[in-house]
Each structure stands twice: as structure tokens, then as C-alpha cells.
Design a protein around this nucleic acid. Structure first.
Lengths: 250, 250
DNA sequence: GGCTCATGTAAAAGCCGTTCACATGAGCTG
DNA sequence: CAGCTCATGTGAACGGCTTTTACATGAGCC
């Protein structure tokens, strides 16, 4: 009983009724399968059940479709990062790491979006709307870094938040792009991409003087491990060098 | 007066004489210009002055050409990393950072190779020779990490060298891919990609407990700033938190 | 000099992107 | 409801790309 509801006349009728959206969905599927490079305008049209010329009524050319997908990707990306950041709850460092995991999760769960956004060669600065969406997403990381930087242990020079944000972004993108997607995921690793990134970020934060001697990732649901935001003051991980973020050496 | 020397009969003669190499060079130029996605087998043939079918005498298909270029790229990459590492001279940390810079320099100076190696979608594990070349290159980073890990300040748990290598690789690739190449280079940054990566690596190493309170990048030619390899023992940067690797806050 | 095989060519098939003239019909206007 | 109009879809056509096939050439060897 699904006719006439949303897909009013899925393929009947001369007019499709919802072709633009159908093309975007089809393209998303195709890109997930074969990558942005292998994706074909004609294939998307075929999949939507229209002629090869029809898409040109909705997109100037193939690149504009790709660009639209990238933009939509950045919007969803922003949403997920925002949710992960959760305004820094329960404490800034925990939330910050959650953002890192959300980054990887997005790259893994939405390979088509990620591909279109970062690996398709779409020039971000060509389309203002796309650029704006991209910047909004990055601003989540930037804002989080800002909050984190404000917590820099007293006595230490405060790291520039922008720099921190760029560093985190490069780590996340590096891990996602090298180890977490497509054939790259087939590289044999001593640990999962998630663990790899988490350790990387923790070590980095420790290098900035943040206290990070905390739980091995995900034990109990979320016990606030230390009084949040009450940095212990010394600017150096308390108690001498803590056990590494990579777990105890066996 | 360059006829008859190397390009013996640049276009004369039925046989080209050196088509395989000419195709590789042509492809390299085309990829540098338009990216691996935009690169065309037919264009390379045209550029070499042969028919569109000729390349098939030397490469099974377009992908094999790409794969050959990636392999050659990994070989040159390995050479440059090896030279930069210089067996850890004058001290391990300095050499390690030099490897990072060499990584970026390669990405910037050899965009075609870098593109074919990491951004063309060539499945590295499809071709054993390619995979071997890729692993040899990574092993340079791995070996350097091994040496670095061996220097871990006494009292600290020794970080797994493999993990360190993967971390460094992800940072370098992240920075290169996001900020240092093509249209990505147009993103406005507060600092150069080189500085960005250098700061990132330094902070990371500090997070592992390595002493990194050293020169602001490139002042005097190479004054060994501190007695190398003689870690000061505490496992924590000596003298409390040193000035940040990002330079003094103004 | 003649054989042979690697290396080149031309032609053709099948795919894609893109454009253009034309067809259809949804929605407004009266 | 008739008729108009314009957004949306079709089919055909152009040029370009990849890849295959049958054929041509000539370099190296006997």
C-alpha cells in the first residue's frame, strides 16, 4: 500500500514528480559503491527511471550534482558533530574526544558523503553555499577547541584554538582517509581506527598539558571520572607520566 | 640541436622507441594538471604522439598505468624519506621532524605522484609490487618511530612504535591532503602547512614525554641545541611546561 | 635476404556527458 | 471546462573516451 503516498507514481506518468531527490539518492548509492570517480550521471538517471537527459533539468551538470551531495554531507556532518559535542558535556575533554569518534563514525557510516566532501575533487570554494556549509561544520570543531584552549592549565601559554582545531581535523581526516574507508580499511592495523585516533588525540592533548589520564575507552556508561573543568593546576599530567593512552603494555 | 640525442626520433619512425616511459611522463604531467580523475589515457597517447590504441601495448589498461605511477611514486617517496631520516642524525627527534617535513615537501612538490599514491582510488593491495613499494616507504616511518620509541624517558611505558608511526602518518597525510594540495591549499590558514604539521608533531611527541623544547623552526643552520639522546630523565619536559611549539603568544 | 615478433595503426563497438528540438501534462486564468 | 504556459521529460545526435580486433611496420636475428 505504498502507492500514492510518497512515491505517488514511482515510474508511471510522464513526469517523475520528485526527480531531483531521486537523483540525489541514486547518486549517493552509486558513490558509496564505486566512489565519486566511478559514479555516472547516466547511471543515476537510469536508476531513477528517466532518460539520460532528464537530470539536466535539475543540475547544470554532473559536477553540480556532486557539489549538492557534498553540501548536504557537510550539513549532516555539522549536525552529527554538534550532537557529539553536546556543548561540552559532561566535561570538555570527554566531549572533545566524542567529537573525534563522531568524525570517524561519519566517515565510516556515510562513505558516499565523505567521499563527495573530501575526496571527489569538488572545489569547495567554487560554490558559496557549499563553502558556507563546510565552514559551519569546521566551526564546530573550532568552537570545541576554543573551549578546550580556555582550559589550558594556568602557567602554560594558551594554545591557539584555531591551530588546535586544524590539528584535530588533520588527525581525524588522516585516520579516516588512510585507515577507515574503502580499500584503505584493508591495511592491517594493530588497533581499530577509532582506538588509533583516540590515542592520537589523547597524546596530543597531553602534549598541550591537559590532564588525560582517564578511563580506558568505554567501560561503564559514563561515570564522570574526575571533577570536570577543575584542572589540577600543574600543567603537567599529575602523578608523573600516566599510563599511556594506548593501554598498558603487556 | 636536441634532435637525435635522447629523443632520437621524437615522432619520426613507425616505432616510438621509448613509448612506455613517454606515457608515464605524459601521464605524470596530466595528473599534476588535472588530477588522477581527470587524466585520460587518450590524452597521454596524444601527448606522446601515438594513436589511442598504442598504450595498450605497454599497459593492460588505464588503471595499470595509474598503478605504475603510484608504484614509482612510492619508490621516490621512500628515497626522500630515507634521505630525510638520515639514520637519525644528528639526533632522533630532529631527524624525525625532518621526515615530517619531507613528507609534506613530497606531497607539495610531486602532486602527481601523491595523487596517484593516495587519492586516485588505486587499490594498493591489488598489485603486489605496488603494495611492497608502499610498505617499504611506510617502513621508513616505522623504523624512525622505533628508534624514537626506544628513547622513551625511563619510567614511562614505552609507546608502541607501530602506533606512533601510524599516528605520524595520519598527521602528515591529513595536513597534506587537507591544506597542502590543490584547491585545498586555498583554505585560509593562520600558518603554513609545514608549520602546522611541525607544531602538531612536536605537541604529540611532548605528549609522549619526549623533550621537545627546542629551536623555533629554522633559525641558525643546525646548532645541536641540547645534548642529543641524553633524555633528562623525568619523563616530563624539563623546566615545567616549555614555551609552546607554536611559538610565543604575542 | 628473409622471418618473426614486438610495437605501432585504423576502425569499430559501447559507454558517457552534454545539447537541442520537441513532447507532455500540471496548474493557472478566465 | 477550455486553453495557455512553462517546468519537466524524451530521443537523437555530437564528440570524446576506453578497449578490442585485424592489420601494418620494421628491428633484430638467422
Amino acid at each position: 500500500m505504498s502507492w500514492r503516498k510518497e512515491p505517488r507514481r514511482a515510474e508511471r506518468g510522464y513526469h517523475h514528480g520528485n526527480l531531483k531527490e531521486a537523483l540525489l539518492q541514486a547518486a549517493l548509492g552509486l558513490i558509496a559503491e564505486k566512489g565519486a570517480a566511478g559514479f555516472t550521471f547516466a547511471d543515476a538517471a537510469r536508476m531513477a527511471g528517466v532518460s539520460a537527459a532528464a537530470p539536466y533539468r535539475h543540475f547544470r551538470d554532473r559536477d553540480e550534482l556532486l557539489s549538492s551531495i557534498a553540501q548536504r554531507g557537510f550539513e549532516q556532518f555539522e549536525q552529527r558533530l554538534t550532537a557529539a559535542w553536546d556543548d561540552g558535556r559532561p566535561d570538555t575533554v570527554t566531549a572533545f574526544e566524542r567529537v573525534g569518534r563522531a568524525y570517524l563514525a561519519f566517515a565510516r557510516e556515510e562513505p558516499a558523503f565523505y567521499n563527495a566532501m573530501f575526496e571527489s575533487g569538488v572545489p569547495v570554494d567554487a560554490n558559496p553555499a557549499l563553502q558556507a556549509a563546510s565552514e559551519r561544520a569546521f566551526n564546530i570543531i573550532r568552537a570545541a577547541a576554543e573551549r578546550l584552549a580556555a582550559l589550558a592549565p594556568p602557567g602554560t601559554p594558551r594554545p591557539p584554538a584555531m591551530m588546535m582545531a586544524l590539528h584535530i581535523w588533520s588527525m581525524a581526516h588522516g585516520v579516516a582517509s588512510l585507515f577507515s574507508r574503502g580499500d584503505a580499511a584493508r591495511r592491517k592495523l594493530p588497533m581499530s581506527p577509532d582506538e588509533l585516533l583516540e590515542a592520537e588525540v589523547l597524546i596530543y592533548l597531553r602534549g598541550l598539558g591537559f590532564p588525560t589520564d582517564r578511563r580506558p575507552p568505554a567501560k561503564s556508561p559514563e561515570p564522570p571520572p574526575v571533577p570536570p573543568e577543575a584542572s589540577s593546576g600543574s600543567g603537567v599530567p599529575p602523578g608523573g607520566p600516566p599510563a599511556g593512552p594506548w593501554g598498558k603494555p603487556k
